[in-house]
């Protein structure tokens, strides 16, 4: 490649060679020549210019009309040359944006990262996978000063960058709440006030917040318009919906979030998810919530983390590995 010179001589030789032999090898050289030209930002009309000059040298007797027609062609190509330049500029810009976005995505990952806490007697599994580069889903674990475990799971509507920025706002408001006692209803009421003040009118957030007390094995929860979670009764071998009434965050200032309570027995499971799980589609068919539970049941005997990973893999495969929406699933199990 490097021996290929971008000059008139070289082009003339290639052209001569091809006219003489009609050989494919010469055509291949022409292709190399054009690639090389692109790398050096040579415009299409410059190539035509080289072509015209070569022709003049190879055929000094070329009729004047043909020569004139070449100038015509040259003129025609100038706009293509400009379009090409613009295309190059846009490509560079795109690369720049892409790398900025991936920096932002990494920052988001760091900012929003949450550590799965080690809790005696409870096993936790959590997975969250964005459909695009940035995740509009969020989950978060926190241990309050009374030793209870708080778990929040949220979904920001829209998607992409604006949603991600919004998520960071939620995360920082949550961090600034007093860690004394993280009552779900109080947390959601405060967050609602934050979101209502700050977020543009078509953006909103759904959130499910739960608090597990490891002494009494009671689970308290409230929901702000979030996809209902599920509760698995080990002894009865049954799932039931864990729903609490409550409006999505950010719609009205004075929304209230009633809190419910659930006694957790050994082997029981608490399942929290976002609508990326229940809104899965297989072709044109929607996945019914019962199917989600069936898949969870199928992998229930695995350790909690492996279980959520297997459930994710199942739905990823079902959608041909193209997530339509961010997917988040968190499972808590009281050990037997």
């Amino acid at each position: 490649m490097s021996t290929l010179k971008l000059d008139l001589e070289n082009y003339k030789e290639l052209l001569k060679e091809y006219i003489r032999t009609k050989d494919e090898q010469a055509l291949y050289q022409a292709e190399q020549f054009s690639k090389h030209s692109m790398q050096h930002n040579i415009s299409p009309e410059e190539i035509i210019n080289i072509h015209v000059q070569s022709l003049e040298e190879i055929y000094p007797e070329m009729p004047a009309d043909i020569q004139a027609s070449m100038n015509f062609l040259l003129e025609t190509m100038i706009s293509y040359g400009l379009a090409y330049q613009e295309h190059q500029a846009l490509r560079e810009k795109q690369l720049e944006l892409k790398s900025e976005l991936s920096v932002a995505a990494n920052m988001q990952k760091t900012l929003l990262s949450t550590k799965k806490p080690d809790f005696d007697g409870i096993e936790i599994g959590a997975i969250s996978v964005p459909a695009k580069q940035m995740n509009g889903d969020y989950h978060h674990f926190v241990q309050d000063q009374e030793g209870s475990l708080g778990i929040g799971i949220a979904d920001v509507i829209g998607k992409g960058v604006p949603a991600a920025l919004c998520m960071s706002m939620i995360k920082y408001s949550m961090d600034s709440f007093p860690h004394k006692r993280m009552e779900p209803s109080v947390i959601l009421e405060s967050l609602n006030r934050v979101v209502e003040r700050n977020v543009d009118s078509s953006m909103f957030i759904t959130m499910f917040y739960g608090l597990y007390n490891p002494q009494s094995h009671k689970f308290y929860y409230s929901s702000a318009g979030h996809e209902p979670g599920y509760y698995y009764h080990h002894e009865r071998g049954e799932f039931c919906e864990m729903d609490a009434p409550g409006l999505v965050l950010g719609v009205t200032k004075d929304a209230e979030y009633p809190q419910k309570e659930q006694q957790v027995d050994p082997g029981d499971m608490i399942i929290m998810l976002t609508d990326g799980v229940t809104e899965c589609r297989q072709g044109d068919r929607f996945i019914e919530p019962e199917e989600v539970l069936e898949i969870i049941k199928k992998y229930m005997d695995l350790p909690a983390q492996e279980m959520v990973e297997q459930v994710y893999k199942h739905f990823e495969k079902l959608q041909d590995f193209q997530l339509r929406d961010d997917f988040t699933l968190v499972v808590l199990r009281r050990n037997v």
Binding site: D155, I157, G158, K159, D200, S201, S202, M203, F204, T206, V248, V251, D275, E279, D325
Partner: peptide
């Protein structure tokens, strides 16, 4: 309708 659609109706309601 997905949640983006809900967002439109929420902003219409606010309006």
């Amino acid at each position: 309708m997905d949640s983006t659609g809900l967002g439109v109706f929420i902003s219409a309601l606010k309006s």
